[in-house]
Design a protein around this nucleic acid. Structure first.
Lengths: 200, 200, 200, 200
DNA sequence: AATGAATGAGTGTTCATTCAT
DNA sequence: TATGAATGAACACTCATTCAT
């Protein structure tokens, strides 16, 4: 069975995907400084050298992972949600349910959230690039919050601060998902409460 | 004439305190793996060798800092609060005000909270030791929550989960305090909302 | 294609052997404290890091070398010699000739003797392990000496003391071999004289 | 009681002597590289800083000790012995008795011999200085040996080689004296046997 | 003069990266 | 292409030396 060039390309793509996927989780758990290439390669199940065929350096790999994390689908979905002709309360409920579900079910969502947020804190170099993504997300969340404040369903306060609060809580439970199994996970209604006034 | 032993002891005690204090902040900001001894020593304003007069190793220094973080005063104060003959809502208000104030004013409170929580996630070795401290804090918080649930002022749900949620939010804003100055800090009433139903 | 595991194993074994061999000489010449890893690696002709692939630490490397030095062949040969049905004088002659020859010809014999004896003096930790080897050697030498004393060919005195004397002289000329080229080496008959009465 | 300048000078002299004396033993036991200033100061019973009042550096201290070791009295006595109008055998007997006695009784003789010889092996820098002393000693010993060979009491062979052999054995038992108490010490007649033919 | 806390150059050890196979 | 042994720059740690007291 001769390897066609196409098949070769396919294999390459698969390996690359696998590295990105596994490394995302590993970096999210151990941080950049706390990740050794040797350990990471073992974790992925490849040789150390192989990593360097696909990525120029540890830093390069990290950056690529970070880029993958900041995909636009997330933003687009949120943008669309914010534009829907429904109450802010519904939007927040919908969003919260989706997020909690992703945390539970979607394999790498927790890692993605964790890395995205971590970078904000730790890596000054990436801060600018990241801001773009983060600020888009915040912008649309803030829009929903403002709508909710008009509708009296959302608590008072700076909409950006509240958006930040909301996503920080998501980050928190992403962290918990990654590291512990001890505590019960937050529910969508717990998450909503960050923004919503009580229902009576 | 030789230095008096008393004076020597004093000097040692002061230097040790300074190292513990400054290193706490540095470790909280950079993590264990992300902290280089040379940078840390520069940050503290001492020679690298000096660190090793007072602490056997980087790990040893970290452990000692962690021990300092887990002081009992915190626990005692919370225990006392939980026992007071006032409404749970008042207790939560009081606690939240105190915590937010400490975050704002008290020099190393943010670092303390951050380290204590980080260790829970990252360092398996410390998990057991840490659990003691953390679980005491959680226990008394849960007690207040349960009181509040009876009084109908606190939302429904597992009291331990809610306690964890509450302190996780505190951790979040400790992180923000340490790393950014961009965002408005959370208010006590934002923090309360994690637990309390709306006032109306 | 990956390297075959067999070839890898081979390479590892070779490098390990080379390190043990060369480091034995280097440690014998410079002592443990006097040996810098950087110098040693240069001497062997490998990178510093390579040493740490094969040995956990400088101390570990030293211990392994020491173990290699204390091989049983030496003991077995001496045991056999001591049991032969020939005069003690012949045994001592034979032994002395062998030893002197090894000192001259066999690459690392001098280093081996030197290290084995040095350790007796300097490293308390190894004393017990070493005693086993050393005491076996002494035991069989003492046996020959006692035979010689009965046959009136060996001088009077405690056989263990004389055995110790004999091997100490060997150690001496191992040292000289390692460090200087100035002095004429001892002859087998010089060595015999430590034990034997004059021939006339 | 005001300290007179004379008394001050005396105290200085005493401390200096104490350091030289104790450090000689310590260096002999641990070697140059194996000696830490902090340990040495503890052993002597003074502060680390004090050493640097009396000696410019570790190396300087070692050199001074080495100079003290190579005193001329030894040489003079041997020179005189070699010139006496008695048989070589008597001279060797006398010398051996004196040496063994010194090893037993004289506090630092073993350390002195050990250091003097060690330096020959280890410290290339000192080799030249040392050679003077050592070669004087060897010269007079060789002279006695040559006399003995004429008188047929001493074994055949290069007189320098035999002198070297003789003093090497002395070094050996100096080592043993310093490090172990296990083995019986050599007797003067054991030592003589290095040079003398048997009595029959 | 004596001390020992502080220092930083030097040493031991690790780990991202390279490269022969 | 994939591997893991080899590397050396970077990091943790030690110790001879200095200096304020």
């Amino acid at each position: 069975m001769p390897k066609t060039p196409e098949r070769c390309q396919e294999i390459r793509e698969e390996t690359r995907k696998k590295i990105l996927h596994d490394a995302m989780l590993y970096f999210a758990r151990n941080g950049f400084a706390g990740t050794k290439i040797s350990d990471l390669a073992d974790y992925i199940g490849i040789g150390q050298g192989t990593l360097y065929i696909y990525f120029k350096s540890k830093e390069d790999l990290f950056k690529e992972i970070f880029t993958v994390c900041n995909n636009d689908r997330e933003i687009k979905e949120l943008k669309m949600l914010s534009g829907l002709p429904i109450s802010a309360k519904s939007k927040i409920s919908k969003l919260s349910k989706t997020v909690i579900e992703k945390l539970e079910k979607e394999g790498n969502y927790a890692a993605k959230v964790t890395l995205t947020t971590h970078v904000l804190f730790e890596k000054d170099d990436f801060a600018s690039e990241n801001t773009t993504y983060q600020s888009e997300i915040y912008k649309y969340t803030a829009k929903i919050i403002e709508q909710g404040q008009k509708e009296k369903s959302v608590v008072a306060g700076s909409s950006m601060k509240l958006a930040d609060f909301y996503w920080s809580v998501v980050y928190l439970y992403a962290l918990k998902k990654l590291f512990t199994s001890k505590y019960e996970t937050i529910t969508a209604s717990d998450l909503e409460r960050v923004l919503l006034k009580d229902k009576h």
